[in-house]
């Protein structure tokens, strides 16, 4: 009866698009070209869906779709691209850490603090040079809830949140890949860890304050740069198979 047209539209969406709309997430592994129909379905969302409840989280066009495009362009047709997307938000009980009572002074009557860990995007892509890329974007949110008596004598409860965004990108190189350490260190905001072995692993991590959605893609790309500087364009490690 209500929202009949939009409900029908959702039924016509790609199943993963439908899952993002109704359940706000999915976990799936698909071959490279099987992502294209997902992206094409997502492209129709804003013209077909008005209801607030079914709006796509802005991180879908802001980070997920761009990273699908970028990683797919570096993959062979038979490469697998896995995605775990969770756009349900940091407020879920399962993401909440222990509450701590904080010392207060009047007029504040009490304050609790807790952290929530919200890993909202994880991707794994088999690239065409035989390396495997894994990326994870996690929001660490600090919540502070305080009770305070206002001038009217009424008790008010206020919750404040502060977010730090963690971006981690790991590249596992093909066996015997031609790799060389970059000539210059990464910027101070990017930390690098290296694991030697049969297959070299380079991990880059970045921490960003007060994440803005429209900057998420820039931050992911900024951290991703480091593991790829080990094989600059034109000297890329060839597939060994």
């Amino acid at each position: 009866m209500f929202w009949r047209k939009q409900k029908a539209a959702i039924q016509r969406f790609h199943p993963l698009h439908r899952a993002l709309t109704l359940e706000k997430g999915f976990t799936v592994s698909l071959r490279r070209d099987d992502w294209e129909p997902v992206i094409q379905s997502l492209a129709r969302h804003t013209t077909e869906i008005r209801r607030r409840k079914w709006r796509l989280d802005e991180r879908v066009p802001g980070a997920l779709v761009p990273m699908l495009r970028i990683l797919a362009s570096d993959m062979p047709p038979d490469g697998v691209l896995s995605v775990a997307a969770d756009m349900r938000g940091a407020e879920l009980p399962e993401k909440k850490g222990p509450e701590v009572e904080m010392p207060v002074r009047p007029p504040v009557l009490g304050m609790h603090q807790w952290y929530a860990l919200d890993p909202w995007l994880r991707m794994r892509a088999e690239l065409r040079d035989g390396s495997v890329l894994e990326l994870a974007v996690t929001d660490r949110v600090r919540f502070r809830r305080r009770r305070q008596r206002g001038s009217s004598g009424k008790v008010k409860i206020k919750t404040k949140r502060k977010t730090v965004q963690l971006v981690q990108v790991t590249r596992r190189f093909a066996k015997d890949a031609a790799v060389r350490r970059p000539g210059t260190p990464p910027p101070a905001s990017v930390r690098v860890q290296v694991k030697q072995g049969g297959r070299l692993v380079v991990r880059a991590s970045g921490k960003f304050r007060e994440p803005l959605v429209d900057r998420a893609i820039d931050r992911i790309l900024q951290v991703s740069t480091e593991p790829f500087r080990w094989t600059p364009p034109g000297t890329a490690a060839r597939r060994t198979t």
Partner: peptide, 20 residues
């Protein structure tokens, strides 16, 4: 261009540019 700037790594951009 922008990552080359952020990393202060001119070779990063020029290797792309030369390849391209």
């Amino acid at each position: 261009q922008s990552s080359s700037h952020a990393y202060q790594d001119a070779a990063w951009y020029s290797s792309f540019d030369q390849y391209d």
